[in-house]
Simulated scan of single mutants.
Amino acid sequence: MTGGELFDRIVSKSFYNEKEARDTCKILFEAIGFCHSKSVAHRDLKPENLLLQSEDSDSAIKIADFGFSKKVLTPNSLTTQCGTPGYVAPEILEGLHYDTKADMWSLGVIMYIILGGYPPFIEQNQRELFRKIRKGQYEFHEEYWGSVSADAKDLIKSLLTVQPSKRITADQALQHKWMLQDASVLAAQDLGANLSELRKYNAKRKFKAAVNAVMMANKLTSLGMNFKDNLKSESSLG
């Protein structure tokens, strides 16, 4: 995947509009729709797991990291609480049985970010973050969403629906009015202001990931040193 992360490619653009956002969402819905047709739930959809195959194409998007993926043999047969804060579906947080619809919630979060430039659920306190997710408390702030088409917002609402049975599938998302809208109409919907916000969000996300990587490296180094010290102690006793 030499093209790097999808979000890095988006924020490098000089111009950005709803057509480009729609084209990206279409690929994601098709990819997850294929997984779901094979009864596979990904369970950890987030920007870090959306990669580009090459530096030459914006459309060769690949979904990565199937470490949490699971076969869904029957509806609502999954029970493991897994995923990433901010993207995880409310039914998982509630400890309920769930299935592939949990992925559609995560795609709703990703679509919100792709269009708005920031996540729908933002809280420093994780307990408060999870409370908002469980209740589906988010809004379309006028400053960034006033110029976004009503159809795009309607699709997001259909994805960020707390009750899984009322949440749309990937196939239904692909048939939504916004997904079928004329390309020239969507190309006229400029997202320049939201692209600036997405750059800020992406920079924070990358910084947080870098900090976590350093913390993990330090922890592993510490564990390695303790392991060596224990070996020395054992050898001196032996």
Rank of each mutant, 00 (worst) to 15 (best):
N226L: 14
F207C: 05
I168S: 10
Y201H: 15
S149Y: 02
T221L: 13
G192D: 11
K206R: 14
N212E: 14
I133R: 00
K219S: 08
A213T: 07
T221S: 13
G146I: 01
Q189R: 13
L191N: 09
V162Y: 06
S184C: 08
Q181I: 08
K132R: 15
L160D: 10
R134S: 09
L155A: 06
S184W: 06
A210E: 12
D182W: 06
D182P: 04
K135R: 15
A193D: 12
L180V: 07
Y144G: 08
A187K: 11
K153L: 03
L191K: 07
Q189H: 12
T221P: 02
Y138V: 01
Q163T: 13
S196T: 15
F140E: 03
W145N: 01
V162S: 07
L186R: 02
A183Y: 05
Q163C: 10
M216F: 09
I168F: 12
K135D: 02
L195Q: 01
L160R: 11
F140M: 02
A183I: 08
L220Q: 11
Y144L: 02
A193T: 08
W178T: 03
H141G: 09
K208G: 07
A210W: 08
L191M: 05
Q189P: 06
E197Y: 04
A217V: 03
K157G: 04
A183D: 14
N212I: 02
K204N: 07
G136W: 04
S196M: 14
A173E: 04
Q137R: 12
K208S: 13
